[in-house]
Design a protein around this nucleic acid. Sequence first.
DNA 1: AAGTGGTCTAGACCACGTG
DNA 2: ACGTGGTCTAGACCACTTC
Lengths: 243, 243
Amino acid sequence: MPQLKGDERLPRYQRLADVLRQEISQGARSPGDRVPSENELSEQYGLAPGTARQAVAQLVAEGVLERFHGKGTYVRKPSFDHALLRFFRFRGLNREGSGPQSRILGREIAHLPDAAAEGLQLEAGTPAIHMSRLRLFDDSPVLVEEIWLPLALFRPLLELPVEDFGPLLYPLYEDCCDQVIAYADEELTAEAADQTTAELLGIAPGAPVIVIERLSHGFDDTALEWRRSWGRADQFHYHTRIR
Amino acid sequence: MPQLKGDERLPRYQRLADVLRQEISQGARSPGDRVPSENELSEQYGLAPGTARQAVAQLVAEGVLERFHGKGTYVRKPSFDHALLRFFRFRGLNREGSGPQSRILGREIAHLPDAAAEGLQLEAGTPAIHMSRLRLFDDSPVLVEEIWLPLALFRPLLELPVEDFGPLLYPLYEDCCDQVIAYADEELTAEAADQTTAELLGIAPGAPVIVIERLSHGFDDTALEWRRSWGRADQFHYHTRIR
DNA sequence: AAGTGGTCTAGACCACGTG
DNA sequence: ACGTGGTCTAGACCACTTC
């Protein structure tokens, strides 16, 4: 019978949750996998069913697992590459245009700027992968992105032709570099568009743009990707509930 | 022994949670009040302790109640009048300046504009209370607010001298009109500042400003206050975690 | 029919805050 | 010392999905 690892003083449901979280972050369980049922977990670890249930409940609350009544519990597939676009309102969906698109403007090895280095916890000036991307909706540009990735983890990405990249990067990270994004922190601000941003977005220089800094993490909290995006403010809206 | 009201088919912990939520929305329990302990609730309603616990847990998750280990469970005091200011980063706190301040620029009865009317679910053009407010931090303006309140609920507010308003409005609503704000929905956008906004905020016309529309609700979901605020984008930052 | 999560019971002991 | 919430046990029955 496997023993619970970790600090003895911690509650058992915490320790079980930690075990599962770590198994996920180390790739022993991947997004989409089924995790053992609550009964199996309780038997395997010698816990009451309610205790195993509590561990699962916590991971569900954290967004790591997903329950399906009668089916089982699964490692959640994070699907937030749409998140940025979710912030924007789009004039009529399903028009003649072609929905969300992505155009890679550049990819090269470059020296990490300060902000990206701080997020990725590397030395500023370290060589890293840098990509520029333009995202469009219905053929009209909505977002310019500057993306930075640690060279050590994402080197295989340099081998792929950019034409094969497709509209979403995170599945690519998983396929070609075995790096799974679990969650990301975003920070929003607004600025006046500079010349080049304005040109790319098709707006006047000085027009307001939303600036979004995103730091993406793996399941084990490693910082994997830093990006800064500039979006058309006239199409941006963001909703929150506060209490 | 009180019986659980509501749909018989609903789980009991749900029905208990509904009872408590309704008691709060109807003023039988007010923010800051202690609610009965889990043991008391389970005895009063003839439930197992675990079931009462589950009801409380749900309300805690919703932000309606707050638990304090060893002390008890309390109706949460929504304290989000700071929320707007929380979105802004301030150059050194505790400087010579005087922290957050509030200046009422105007208060009168006026006809509801469309956006406010839609939020408050009243006819556009209905007479309502309108207030303009400037919020400052360390004597420097950060936010201009336009506030609309239903006349029927907030009439006593017109009697008070604006000099006595103080920096926070929600406690005032509670004290003078018995209206308690439970939660609010906010929608963020960015715009270029128009002439008057720019002057009030001390920025150049056309400079980017954050626009925040807020609709505040009571515990029973009644729309109580609609406001639109314009904030200096250069001091705005907003953080989210996405999954 | 079998297996899963969802609800519920009726207790136990522990950790924390207050008097 | 007492009452609170926090953890945990060892079951029960139900609702849902799949075969």
